[in-house]
Design a protein around this nucleic acid. Structure first.
Lengths: 232, 232
DNA sequence: GACTCCCCAAATGTATACATGAAGGCGAGT
DNA sequence: ACTCGCCTTCATGTATACATTTGGGGAGTC
């Protein structure tokens, strides 16, 4: 990891805090309080707040400061739908342009690495990070291969929603992970054979499905959390 | 227009300068020089540079400052394709949810205003701003009606590319404008009748077509600009 | 007792001083 | 004369002092 400035470091820390739900929705964030908490001056904190505002994680009003933006299931689903459309598009462009040998090799490696990690019939907890990294690599390689940096930028935006990050997945169902990795197989095949339309459709479904899984997961969790109160 | 801070004002000015091509691609932007030029201190300038970096207009390297990002025809086309996908999605969601009476009324108004402006068989120069505003209203209303703020955010991003703004259009061909407004008619109809799939397809084509027109326009201009040099 | 107006406190906006790092030129040594 | 390394210079990164605005609380009046 290359050296980074305090502004960048604070931005990353604060983004992580917000994405992890450390703050309550709507909670106001004070520059001075954050600066003291992080052990820096207001300057890097202001940079970070400004950045997260543009990324869409914070609300802002002139002379009134920043607040944590509220996100509902609806927003998460919309983010996944947007991501599905964008990554589908990137996938099609990549297939149309044709990949470099290097990029093709990376994708092939991702697919075979995934096969290994899943070969035992389950995903071992110690392999979770490896699988996650493989998944990120797969998607980022395709975005890069699309040749359109703006698509990568837009997709990055769609990750900036609590629960919607590509690093957060539903891991408790081997069947779902297996099916997801099966999608990777077919996407790779479609790209390699320049079946651009098929590649687009597969990627759209791949991402959309992940969104649906996450949605059900969140709703189930919310139901459980509410039950004790509903009994009274 | 509500009062805004210097940071916001400088950001808007600088964004406009970059979008209008005031700086050469790759040109470096110095904080101090900009601050003097704009008559403010480095603080608002730094805010602005940070903002435009995240919006994707500037490149940045730690301890090395900011530079104007280069955009090619390829980027512009990709931006339009992304916008087509996103606005198509928003249009479908809006049609599925159903619009409020107010939003429906706004769209209807946009359509009939456009009819008036084009009724003479051409678009008069003094009506150009009115038409442009109508067009912006139409698209923004649909984005709002989609109920997904993230879509509006993402679409805004796609405007942050030189030549790709929704405020820049190719105005010299009445036929094209007329066809574009005809799309609005049909999109309105599809939304009003909750024909969500049709609404999505129409909007996708509507935006994609605008991108194609712009692409040809840019290429034609580039050809003309190069000719004198090619003769030598 | 409630309402209004004014003043103060606190938070954000802006400027500037200071710190750090990077790049290029100049001088010394070979 | 050429190369290596240091040193100067300048631009960015960070902290802090100062300015402005907002909102609330207290005092005074009806």
């Amino acid at each position: 990891m290359t050296k980074q400035t305090r502004s960048q470091s604070v931005t990353d820390q604060l983004r992580e805090l917000v994405l992890q739900g450390t703050f309550n929705p709507g909670e106001r964030l004070y520059e001075i309080a954050l600066a003291e908490r992080m052990g820096v001056s207001r300057t890097p904190v202001r940079d970070a707040l400004n950045t997260l505002k543009i990324e869409g994680l914070l609300d802002y009003e002139t002379q009134r400061g920043y607040g944590v933006r509220e996100f509902g299931t609806h927003d998460i689903v919309a983010a996944y739908e947007a991501r599905a459309a964008l990554e589908g598009l990137a996938c099609r462009l990549a297939a149309e342009n044709g990949l470099t040998k290097d990029d093709l090799a990376i994708l092939e490696r991702c697919v075979s690495d995934g096969d290994s990690l899943l070969s035992s019939g389950k995903l071992l907890p110690e392999n979770l990070n490896l699988y996650r990294q493989m998944n990120v690599d797969f998607h980022e390689t395709i975005l890069r291969a699309s040749g359109a940096r703006i698509l990568a930028d837009l997709v990055r935006q769609t990750h900036n929603i609590p629960f919607a990050s590509n690093r957060i997945m539903v891991w408790d169902d081997y069947q779902i992970i297996h099916r997801s990795h099966d999608d990777h197989h077919r996407i790779f095949e479609a790209i390699a054979h320049q079946q651009s339309k098929r590649a687009e459709a597969l990627m759209q479904e791949h991402v959309f499905f992940a969104g649906q899984v996450l949605k059900k997961h969140i709703e189930a969790k919310a139901r459980i959390a509410e039950e004790p109160g509903e009994r009274g």
